[in-house]
């Protein structure tokens, strides 16, 4: 396996097919993401956005094609899953915090038990991350005691504790009350500005337009159209894109 250099795409997806039983969800998807780039994936419900993003860190397997993350072939049965997941964090729509652990324990868990790092050092880092997502003082709260927006920021801090190179966000604001959406989005924006490579599935078109370097529009398992946000939003070419944007904007 050749080693990856930062000048190459950090994520390289080519001609990926994925089916659940006989139902084709992804029908030949290809896209490249460069290091530090922020990519937004938009598209109608059921078009395979979540499926695609989950394939990138190996939560879903694929039938054919190739996904390379920092030179690692995700679909390779001999892949070191730990190496992949250490470098790729994912945040889910439903937060999925561990309800029996405090905020601090949630954030510290993976570095301590997976990476076997020293507790004291991890705790210091965890506290800094909790402060970074603006949740100082909530270290000892349980997830059930937090609002949705706060929980989602804990989920982001929990991912960041693994010090990933890439963050995946799957509709992370869809389950939130409108007033808490912005606090999560601004946390993501901070990350993007610090140069984190991000792939976001989102229905927040304004946000996509603001933070994205590149927008992909998917429909029925294929990428219909893609481009930089100003071109994409100002001048969509495909009728399906126009129809979708007409509905959501």
């Amino acid at each position: 396996m050749k080693t990856w250099t930062p000048s190459e795409p950090i994520i390289s997806i080519s001609n990926v097919h994925k089916a659940y039983g006989s139902f084709q969800v992804l029908k030949g998807v290809s896209l490249d993401v460069k290091k530090g780039e922020v990519v937004c994936i938009i598209g109608p419900s059921g078009s395979g956005k979540s499926t695609l993003i989950r394939c990138i860190n190996g939560l879903n397997d694929i039938q054919s094609g190739s996904i390379r993350v920092e030179g690692m072939e995700v679909n390779d049965p001999k892949l070191d899953k730990l190496a992949l997941r250490k470098n790729v964090g994912i945040v889910f729509q439903q937060f999925n915090l561990f309800p029996h652990k405090t905020v601090l324990e949630n954030v510290m868990m993976a570095p301590v038990i997976v990476l076997k790092q020293a507790r004291t050092e991890v705790e210091q880092r965890a506290r800094a991350l909790i402060a970074k997502v603006r949740l100082e003082g909530k270290e000892n709260a349980y997830p059930g005691e937090l609002s949705g927006g706060q929980q989602q920021r804990v989920a982001i801090a929990r991912c960041l504790a693994m010090a990933p190179d890439i963050m995946l966000f799957d509709e992370v604001t869809s389950a939130l009350d409108p007033e808490t959406v912005n606090e999560v989005l601004s946390t993501i924006k901070d990350l993007a500005q610090e140069g984190m490579t991000c792939i976001l599935v989102t229905h927040e078109m304004g946000f996509a337009r603001e933070v994205a370097d590149h927008i992909y529009f998917t429909d029925k398992g294929v990428i219909v159209e893609h481009g930089p946000p100003d071109v994409f939003f100002a001048n969509p070419k495909d009728p399906r894109t126009r129809e979708f944007l007409g509905k959501v904007l």
Partner: peptide, 20 residues
């Protein structure tokens, strides 16, 4: 979702079972 988030944090199945 508990299994998935543990898996995405690179916990093994056994770690997920006993700790989560």
């Amino acid at each position: 979702g508990q299994w998935e988030s543990a898996e995405s944090l690179a916990l093994t199945r056994r770690q997920t079972m006993w700790r989560i």
